[in-house]
Simulated scan of single mutants.
Amino acid sequence: MLAPLKSLDTLPRQNASQVKNRWKDVVRQVRQSGSVAITNHSVVEMVLVDAQQYRDLTEEIQAHQSREQAVLDELANRFDERLAVLQRPEARDHLQALFEAKGKLARAPKVGESY
């Protein structure tokens, strides 16, 4: 599980010129804090992250996508099963009987304290 990521507003910042001219210092800062926000005209344009943190992020995303795909596959299977029931030859007769009943029940519903 990933450690919580810092808010973009709380990250240490370096402007683009500092990154270009003082790369070693920026690398050291990334290693110490995990990430550094790179600004251009005081606007954050990108974030440098440690390579291990990047690997962790990509693994977490892939795991999430796998879980998501498994859920979608399960839903698709359930849909296909229900559709197969509706496509059976006797389904038409059952549906026709429902329409002909016009909301009337063949027997009275059970009611009472025990139901």
Rank of each mutant, 00 (worst) to 15 (best):
K24S: 13
N40D: 07
Q14V: 13
R88Q: 15
A91E: 04
S7V: 01
V111A: 10
K110F: 06
E45A: 07
T58S: 10
Y115N: 03
E59S: 14
N15F: 08
L8H: 03
N21W: 05
Q65D: 08
Q53H: 10
Q18P: 01
Q69Y: 04
P12Y: 02
E68F: 13
V19S: 01
A3N: 12
P12M: 02
Q14T: 07
Y115H: 12
L86H: 07
A63Y: 11
E60W: 13
D80W: 01
Q14A: 12
W23H: 09
Q87L: 15
L8D: 04
V27A: 12
E45F: 01
V36Y: 02
N77P: 01
H64I: 03
R13V: 00
D80S: 10
L72P: 03
R78F: 04
L72M: 05
N21G: 05
R82M: 05
I38M: 09
L86Q: 08
Q29V: 05
P4L: 09
K6Q: 11
S33K: 10
N15G: 07
D25E: 15
L48E: 05
L48W: 08
V26F: 06
S7A: 13
N15C: 07
V49N: 05
H41N: 15
L105T: 07
Q87C: 00
S33F: 15
P89N: 04
I38G: 03
V27I: 13
Q69V: 04
D50S: 10
S17M: 07
K110A: 09
S33I: 01
L57F: 12
D73P: 02
A108P: 05
N21V: 03
E81F: 10
V36C: 01
R55A: 13
A84K: 14
N15V: 04
V30L: 00
E90A: 12
V27S: 14
L83I: 04
A70Y: 00
L95N: 04
E59R: 15
R22Q: 13
K110L: 11
R31C: 04
L48K: 05
Q52W: 03
N21P: 02
D56L: 12
E100T: 11
Q18W: 01
Q14E: 10
M1Q: 09
L95V: 14
E60H: 15
A108I: 03
A51L: 11
S17Y: 08
G34A: 00
